[in-house]
Amino acid sequence: MVFRFSLWLSLFLMLFSGGSGAENAPPQRIVSMNLCVDQLLILLAEPQQIAALTQLAHDPDASYYYQKALAYPTNKGLAEEVLPFKPDLVIAGEYAHVATVQLLKKLGIPVETLPIPNSLNEVFNNIRRIGELVGQPERATTIIQQMQQRLAQASAPVSNAPLVVVYEANGYTVGDASLRGEILHQAGWQNAATQLGINSYGQIALEDLIRLKPLALIDSPYRAGTYSRAQALLAHRALKSSAFSPHIIQIPSKLTICEGPWLIDVIEQLQAERLKLTVGTTP
């Protein structure tokens, strides 16, 4: 009887203390299932908190923190790969496989998903969110403040912003309602894609691009130097003809695939390119 009571008591205490303790103690074995979560974890979490990153984190073209990521094991986003790490938190992207996420939840593993940001404000939200999840809210706040300060210094109103267009493999581009669209504006450019009615993402036909006649194209090639028809489009003769040879601004793909403080570097680079290209043409 006494034994039984003490068992109940200890069980009750365990549940109670365990429950309240887990809420405060930050997770110690975090597994990421998304490249951009990888970056924010390396940025914000303590190294020993990270159990595994995604396989793409070890791709120097895709991963900003490629060097740091090499220290961690990776997964390809399958439930059976995630489980052996015995995670106490799994963070996935917005478009993670629903079945995988459901399976992990069913097995009692907490799964959080991180949305894809469409503006700088949403980038700050994501940084804040990961900061809270890994138990480093102050670190996140400091980083956001630093970004905002640099942003305030970088962006100044431009009277006649020149036309630019993001032109990637297969002619894919972004509109104003996207993160990269906002970055163009912050750097003092005007996005030509909006003239075609492209709001967030879309494709620009070569003929339309030539009619728009932007001052510059922004190319952020992933795995440059490989061949596909999609990538070969940027080498089309029509883009090199004397009337229209837009300046091509190259931004490494690891800076544009995921969100993070490096986005301010992108804004500064785009602004420097704008000043270089418009010098002498505008007062």
Partner: peptide, 25 residues
């Protein structure tokens, strides 16, 4: 197996034929 990440999607160009954005070259 091709190194380009866009290669697989271009199978349809080879099996169905495509004349879009070919150049004088």
């Amino acid at each position: 197996l091709a190194p380009s990440p866009y290669a697989m999607r271009e199978l349809v160009l080879w099996t169905l034929g495509d004349l879009t954005d070919r150049s004088m070259d």
